[in-house]
């Protein structure tokens, strides 16, 4: 049976793991390779590395770090941040990443999804979508890009369907309102997108306690994976405990 995935996320700035609240106020959270190995040993199912400054500073994503991570862990990982072209996608995959995550470019230049999916397969194309509530949108949520700085006027569900049809293999859906608050995942938008699309949805933003993971994996919401950062970085939730808890509550997990 397919297991629900627990994915620690490492936001990377200048080669260090950082963590902020509502996308701002960054704090240092350690060395990314050391963090990655620790998560791998603890039983994380996958890792996501987001170079959170790359888009803003228009810098190339970090190939050397990606290689170092690939040498040191034996679980899949995704790299995102500032990916602008099919060549960027190729370079990151060649450095050993299993998937790339595209966010701003999925809005600005959605062709990159189609071209990359045709060339490398949908399985390695993750489209990250950051959303914020907006009552004027049909789904009630609007898409933001540039690390949450720019409103796009796009409806979250319309955008998600669009990237799916272009060949995205997964959606990494972050609610900007719940992100960093530890008040639980945004069940409303996660379940709407998950139920409406045929590709897996990774829920992100707001994990605070083990019950939040149970809720987001329960059949009524049915996220394929849940991503969190600070609760894992600061040992507020240990992954083995979380997996035991989920298993006891009937959620299939890899233990």
């Amino acid at each position: 049976m397919l297991a629900k995935r627990i994915i620690p996320c490492l936001d990377i700035k200048n080669g260090r793991t950082v963590k902020g609240i509502n996308f701002l106020d960054l704090r240092d959270a350690g060395d990314p390779v050391e963090n990655a190995v620790r998560y791998c040993d603890e039983g994380a199912d996958e890792l996501v590395f987001l170079d959170i400054t790359a888009t803003i500073e228009r810098r190339e994503p970090i190939g050397e770090l990606v290689k170092k991570i690939a040498r040191n862990i034996n679980i899949p990982f995704t790299v995102g941040g500032g990916i602008k072209s099919v060549d960027d996608v190729k370079n990151i995959l060649l450095c050993g990443a299993d998937k790339v995550s595209i966010n701003s470019q999925a809005v600005r230049n959605s062709e990159i999804i189609k071209l990359s999916a045709q060339r490398f397969g949908s399985q390695c194309m993750v489209v990250a979508i950051d959303v914020r509530k907006n009552a004027d949108m049909p789904s009630g949520y609007e898409v933001y890009i540039d690390g949450g700085r720019t409103a796009t006027g796009l409806d979250a569900l319309v955008h998600a369907r669009c990237v799916e049809s272009l060949g995205a293999g997964e959606i990494l859906l972050t609610s900007m309102e719940t992100d960093g608050t530890k008040g639980g995942f945004d069940i409303e938008i996660t379940s709407l997108v998950s139920r409406s699309l045929s590709i897996p949805v990774i829920a992100s933003g707001g994990a605070g306690k083990m019950e939040d993971f149970l809720t987001v994996f329960s059949p009524s919401c049915d996220a394929a994976a849940a991503l969190a950062a600070s609760v894992f970085h600061y040992h507020e939730i240990d992954i083995p405990d979380l997996k035991n808890y989920l298993q006891e509550h009937g959620i299939p997990v890899r233990v």
């Binding site: 397919l2 995935r5 199912d45 399985q123 293999g169 997964e170 045929s198 897996p200 394929a224």
Partner: peptide, 8 residues
């Protein structure tokens, strides 16, 4: 749900 992604 396609692709089949994850631990099985």
């Amino acid at each position: 749900k396609i692709p089949h992604i994850g631990w099985n």
